[in-house]
Design a protein around this nucleic acid. Structure first.
Lengths: 204, 204, 204, 204
DNA sequence: CGTTAATCGAGACGGTACGTCGAGTCTTAAG
DNA sequence: CTTAAGACTCGACGTACCGTCTCGATTAACG
């Protein structure tokens, strides 16, 4: 009997999956996350509702995969390197450059709506939140860890500093302002963050 | 004609308002935000749905006010000062103390569920997000601004530093870890943040 | 104690009563009986809801009184005689004339909507139905009874015939066709009814 | 697009339909028509409200079909002939017999409440009223038409009489008394109606 | 002829039902 | 066995009215 466990993924329709991803992202972009419904995604994708329920367990999960897929797709298109932090030897300049790029990306509506949607869901749904962090946030943060390690090797960062924590000094403020609308975001702002973070706010 | 705008707030039932606040907070605590419904709040409060719709325009708004009210209530009970940052002259120690208290509060389930709910809604609903910031977040942050200004006067913080930005160096990382489950939260962690923020991560 | 019983009718506002009658009839005419609401009547009459509930116990009752009042008003305007059945000595002609007038009245939209509303309510609400009959229907039927009695005296109707039943032979068919849309209504039709009723359908 | 028109009736759940008919009739019988609600029918039938709204557009329509179905069901149970008017050759006796049976039926509460409900709704809602007549009333009246035609052939009714009108002489008075509570209903009463109708009220 | 108690307009209140939407499950027919 | 389609039960939505209940602000009978 035991019929309901584990659909056979070898028989899965690739076309439907693509259509679902596309529909989900399009709808979230057009009407926002709360008004995006499974029913709506199915209709837009020309797919039965069951096809969605068979492979995903929630709207958030669909969107998460769609978003991840979008990322991979973009990466495949652009080149293989997902995106890296430059290492010119000038730590401050490198960090400022990356953060400026991040500021621009955060303001790109193509990414903004689904990112917010996922982030918001993650705040309230711990499981999804951890997934979001593991699959989307942490990989990016690891790039900073690496850059900071390299800076430690070059003597530009104190050796006793924990890079995973240090990076939060400039990344988290930006993240918070964006997430919570707690302040304006600009290149000057992130430049200032880098300066403060590198040298502290206490007088030398 | 124009009859539907602005109910007469002088005739508002205080008892109903209280009951609605209580029910909303209780339900959010018990079943979580998404499963908290207007219908449920009304039923629990022993109130007609219309009485909620008359005075609030969304579940989020109800919860926001309920939460604000809870804060005020607690403040009234405890004493008049909402809560302040000590100024012992030792900036690092003062900040560490407050942040440790914040860590504890963030883990208190009484506040955690509704806070998350509101924060999450604010991520996705800009209007509410800005309200959340203005009414709940910014007032707290202003306390840090004041403490940092005092530290600048005492020569413990460089005079060219913008306190509103500087405070984010230690507040935002904690906020992000809490909001996004992007890392563990502990007293050691916040102590470290203060140290890094005050003196920077670059060698002197 | 006993405060709620019997409002003091000497203090009753005549202006409000008139306004309520007018509003009720206007609304029933405009939107039909089911969409006519107490709230709507009150708003239209510029009257508090309580003023309606104080003096009437249901929508149907308001409408009934409004309709009765309308009748009296019309009678007052036209002349004192409500309306009578002529007695020219020619029974068939007299009945045909009255029924032709009735046909015309039934088609007058000014009376049709509220009459139907009341009649319908009376079908389902026995108390109101009996009131409707007693106050509106029976007085009219009594006129036929009198005319038939006079005809019996003149030898135009068999003396053993019960006039109260006899009148139904021509009145009820018209009433049913009108009430139930069970057939078209015309002067020819009522003429035929009178002929059949007077002489029967069996051959002599 | 155009998705909302015409649900696929081949996939309709027969079980739900039956349950809805049963619930509707039961509720109308128990609490009366005005207190019978779609919500109540759905709950009683163990059915989603949408399933009702999908297939019917109003409470009246549901009840109408339920009532029609009840009739068919009864007919199926009893025998194939719906019910006929006897033709013993004695027209008066035959009519009296049928009308006596009708009187009894009109007093049977099993039929009375829903019949009144439908009739009342039909008074005020022309579309439904005509449906009521077409599906329920007229078929019964046709039986009288046929019996009268047969009587005409036998020379018991004048050949120039229109049977469709003639039947109203005895049917409509009964109908009106029942519908409007305008008089008592009894076997003697209907007998009298038949006598009057057949021979007229004028002396021979 | 003021007093005062009831009625008045207004509308907030606790409720019930409305008709709609979407969730997630289940069934059917086609491939 | 998966798929598109969509009917099903369920529950919440936000709205409309119900009938009850305060509120001042008029009134109108009577003291």
């Amino acid at each position: 009997m035991a019929k309901n466990l584990a659909p056979d993924s070898t028989r899965r329709s690739e076309k439907s999956r693509r259509a679902i991803y596309d529909a989900a992202l399009a709808l979230v972009g057009e009407v926002g996350y709360p008004k995006t419904t499974i029913e709506g995604i199915a209709a837009r994708a020309g797919v039965g509702k069951q096809t969605i329920y068979r492979w995903w367990s929630s709207k958030a999960e669909v969107l998460m995969e769609a978003f991840l897929d979008l990322g991979e797709q973009v990466n495949r298109d652009v080149g293989q390197e997902p995106y890296v932090i430059p290492d010119t030897g000038d730590l401050a300049a490198d960090l400022k450059a990356v953060l400026r790029a991040t500021v621009d990306e955060l303001k790109d509506p193509r990414f903004e709506v689904p990112s917010r949607a996922l982030a918001a869901e993650g705040v309230v749904n711990e499981q999804l939140g951890r997934q979001f962090v593991a699959k989307l946030l942490e990989p990016s943060l690891q790039l900073y860890v690496e850059r900071l390690r390299s800076a430690q090797a070059a003597g530009d960062v104190r050796p006793d500093v924990d890079p995973r924590i240090a990076l939060e000094l400039f990344v988290s403020p930006l993240a918070q302002r964006w997430l919570q609308y707690s302040g304006p975001i600009s290149h000057e702002y992130t430049d200032t963050l880098v300066d403060y973070a590198l040298h502290g706010i206490a007088p030398r």
